[in-house]
């Protein structure tokens, strides 16, 4: 099949060449004498590459940082109490996570608190959609929203403990407050800024308010919702750490305090790295999902 196809193609090239000899002025080969584009360097290809290569690149970066870290710790600082080396930290992580199993309960506790608080803060999505629909409501909640958004949520920790005690609830509450208003503000603003243009389209076809909401406002808000969730993840983790640091007897934040007080710096590093890893993984996850909806963004 392939050969059958290529044979006449070959013949026609020859014919063209023969023709070009007769009439050189219009030779079709002139256009092809331009240099072919140089193949791109491998690492450039990597940067724009598929998921596996992306992961490889990330691993390379992590290894690089590990090596620099190790060199700085061993050759320059030389004080494990002040700045434990990379291998030290990995060893402690191994002990905390694999051989000792001592950190899991705390990890689970923190994730549970963050999960409950974050889950509740998702009510900010429907509420934000609702508020964004009404200009009056938008204006009415402006002061509350701005205050709650700008307030350092750590300031609420003592209050949360008075109200909800030292257990899970007070932490979940702080997480909720941290994430909820951020989601509410972003989602309601997204709705309010969805172009008049598409709503006019709906109006000229006499679409009901409900249909306009379902077909235009809701899908139009989706990219903004994912951006808000991505930001809220970071806020939620800050909330958990702050609340646990202040008063608790379990959780990664609690461990941070214990490790710090006991100058167990390598363990401290492990706890910090755990937060960093959880934050990064969730943020990348939401980012990846959000990117699928990026093309839903209505062009201005």
């Amino acid at each position: 099949m392939k050969r059958m196809f290529s044979a006449p193609a070959f013949a026609s090239t020859e014919a063209a060449e023969a023709g070009s000899a007769a009439a050189p002025a219009l030779s079709p080969h002139v256009a092809l004498t331009r240099e072919p584009p140089r193949p791109r360097r491998r690492w450039v290809q990597w940067l724009s590459a598929n998921p596996q290569e992306r992961v490889l690149l990330w691993c390379a970066a992590i290894v690089f940082i590990g090596v620099v870290w190790q060199v700085v710790a061993v050759a320059f600082v030389r004080s494990p109490l002040f700045f434990p080396s990379f291998t030290d930290t990995v060893a402690h992580a191994w002990q905390l996570y694999v051989s000792g199993h001592s950190i899991y309960g705390d990890f689970a506790q923190s994730m549970y608190e963050a999960g409950v608080g974050f889950g509740l803060s998702l009510t900010g999505i429907p509420l934000g959609l609702l508020i964004g629909l009404s200009r009056r409501l938008m204006i009415a909640i402006e002061p509350v929203n701005s205050a709650m958004y700008a307030l350092p949520h750590i300031a609420l920790v003592p209050l949360a403990i008075i109200w909800f005690g030292l257990g899970v609830t007070s932490k979940a509450f702080i997480v909720f407050i941290s994430a909820f208003f951020l989601i509410l503000i972003n989602v309601s603003a997204a709705v309010a800024t969805i172009g008049r243009e598409l709503q006019d389209v709906a109006a000229t076809y006499s679409a009901s308010r409900w249909r306009t909401f379902i077909t235009i406002i809701l899908p139009g808000s989706v990219p903004f919702i994912f951006v808000a969730l991505q930001l809220a993840i970071g806020r939620a983790l800050v909330g958990v750490v702050a609340a646990e640091l202040f008063a608790s007897n379990k959780g990664l934040g609690y461990l941070l305090g214990v490790f710090g007080n006991n100058f167990e710096t390598a363990d401290l590093f492990v706890a910090i790295a755990t937060f960093a890893a959880v934050g990064a993984i969730l943020s990348v996850l939401f980012g990846l999902i959000g990117r699928r909806f990026e093309k839903w963004r209505i062009a201005a």
Partner: peptide, 14 residues
């Protein structure tokens, strides 16, 4: 009664 062809395509991207 009518249908409008707007100046901008104003299509739903999704």
């Amino acid at each position: 009664p009518f249908a409008v062809v707007f100046q901008q395509p104003s299509l739903l991207p999704w």
